[in-house]
C-alpha cells in the first residue's frame, strides 16, 4: 500500500477563516473553522468580523490547529488547496496568498477550487454511493443555485436566485418579525408553533419552467402582512400566534419552492440523483420535504453532515479530483468574485 497524499486546504471566501487536512482517499483528518473554536472567543466574540484583516489574523492559528488535530506535520503535506472563487475578493486573496506561499515553500502542487462546487462535493465526501451524474443544489445565505453535474468537475450552472438567496430571506424575515439573531434558526423555531397554511405567500416561478428563484417578493409580502399597508420597519409585531403563523407560512412557501425546483431539475436532466449543500439544509422543514419528495419520485438524495454544510475548508476535497487529473494552479492564481 502506498502512503496517502495529505492535502492542506484553506477557505476565506466570506466570514469564515477555515483550514482542513484530508487524504487522497477522502478521509477528513481535521476541519477547523475559526468562528467555531475557542480561538474566535479569544480574539473577539461572536459577531463575525468581516474583513481581510480578520482572515489574516486567523489564518496561521487555524492552519496550525488543523495540522495539530490531524496529527500531521507541515512537511508531510503533499498538496495545498484553496478556494479562490466566488466571494469577496479581498478576503479570498488572503487564502490564495497563503496557499501560494505554502505551495512554494513546501515545493508541492497548488490546486484552486470553486467554493460553490465544493458545497456540492461535500455531499460525496462521507458517502460511498456514487453521486455523479447528479443535480447539485447549493442553498445558503449567499447562494441559491442549481447545477447539472456530469462529474465533480464538469458542471453546468442551470439557474439561481434573481435577488435574495434563500438563507438571506430567512434572516431578513426573521428581522421583520423581530426574531433576532441568528435569524434562520430562530425563524424555524417560531414556525414550529404556527400554522403553515395560515397565509398564502407568493411562490415565485413555481409554476414556470425556468430553473430560477426569487425571494424578494415573499419578503415584501411578509412585511406588509406583518405590518399593514403603511409598513414602518420599527413597528414590530408582537410575539403572539400571528407571528408564528406568518413564520410557518413563510417557511412553507420557501421550502416548497426550493424542493419543487430541485425536483424539476432532476426530472429535466433525468439524472435521478440530487446533492444538496449549504447552510440552509440545517432547516428541518426543508430537509423533511426533500426526503419526502425524493422518496416519492425515487430520487437518490445526498446531504452532507452539518459540519460540511456551512462554510468550511474540508469541502475543498474536490481538489482530490483535480489532483488525479494533474489540474494544478500556478503562482499567478487570482481570486475571482463570480463563479461563472
Amino acid at each position: 500500500m502506498t502512503n496517502p497524499v495529505y492535502f492542506l486546504a484553506l477557505e476565506s471566501s466570506c466570514d469564515e477563516t477555515a483550514a482542513a487536512v484530508f487524504t487522497d482517499d477522502r478521509r477528513i483528518l481535521s476541519n477547523v473553522v475559526a468562528s467555531q473554536t475557542e480561538l474566535h472567543a479569544r480574539f473577539g466574540g461572536v459577531v463575525p468580523e468581516i474583513a481581510s484583516r480578520a482572515h489574516l489574523r486567523n489564518l496561521l492559528p487555524v492552519i496550525d490547529e488543523s495540522l495539530r488535530q490531524a496529527n500531521i506535520r507541515l512537511e508531510q503535506i503533499g498538496c495545498v488547496v484553496v478556494h479562490n472563487m466566488p466571494g469577496l475578493v479581498g478576503s479570498l486573496m488572503m487564502g490564495v496568498s497563503a496557499a501560494k506561499i505554502l505551495s512554494l515553500a513546501l515545493n508541492v502542487p497548488l490546486i484552486a477550487v470553486n467554493h460553490i462546487l465544493g458545497h456540492i462535493y461535500a455531499c460525496q465526501i462521507p458517502d460511498s454511493r456514487p453521486m455523479y451524474p447528479c443535480i447539485g443544489f447549493v442553498v445558503s445565505g449567499g447562494h441559491t443555485a442549481l447545477f447539472h453535474c456530469q462529474d465533480p468537475l464538469t458542471v453546468q450552472f442551470l439557474g439561481g436566485t434573481r435577488d435574495d438567496a434563500a438563507g438571506e430571506a430567512f434572516d431578513k424575515v426573521a428581522a421583520i418579525l423581530g426574531l433576532g439573531f441568528p435569524g434562520g434558526p430562530n425563524l424555524e423555531k417560531e414556525a414550529q408553533k404556527g400554522d403553515p397554511n395560515a397565509y398564502q405567500f407568493p411562490r415565485t416561478f413555481l409554476k414556470e419552467d425556468r430553473l430560477e428563484f426569487s425571494f424578494s417578493g415573499i419578503k415584501t409580502a411578509v412585511l406588509y402582512t406583518a405590518q399593514g399597508q403603511d409598513a414602518k420597519i420599527s413597528e414590530k409585531i408582537g410575539s403572539g400566534p400571528t407571528r408564528a403563523n406568518i413564520a410557518a407560512s413563510f417557511q412553507r412557501a420557501v421550502v416548497e419552492v426550493l424542493v419543487s425546483k430541485a425536483i424539476q431539475a432532476v426530472k429535466k436532466f433525468r439524472v435521478n440523483r440530487l446533492a444538496v449543500g449549504g447552510g440552509v439544509i440545517a432547516n428541518q422543514a426543508f430537509r423533511q420535504l426533500l426526503i419526502q419528495e425524493c422518496n416519492k419520485y425515487g430520487i437518490e438524495l445526498f446531504i452532507p453532515p452539518r459540519d460540511l454544510c456551512t462554510d468550511n475548508a474540508a469541502m475543498a476535497a474536490l481538489a482530490i479530483e483535480k489532483y488525479k487529473q494533474g489540474d494544478f494552479a500556478n503562482l499567478s492564481l487570482d481570486a475571482e468574485a463570480n463563479f461563472i
Partner: peptide, 14 residues
C-alpha cells in the same frame, strides 16, 4: 439576472 443581493457576500462585482 447576475445582479443579486450582496447582503451575505458583501460586495458583488459585475
Amino acid at each position: 439576472a447576475s445582479v443579486t443581493s450582496p447582503t451575505f457576500g458583501l460586495i458583488h462585482e459585475y
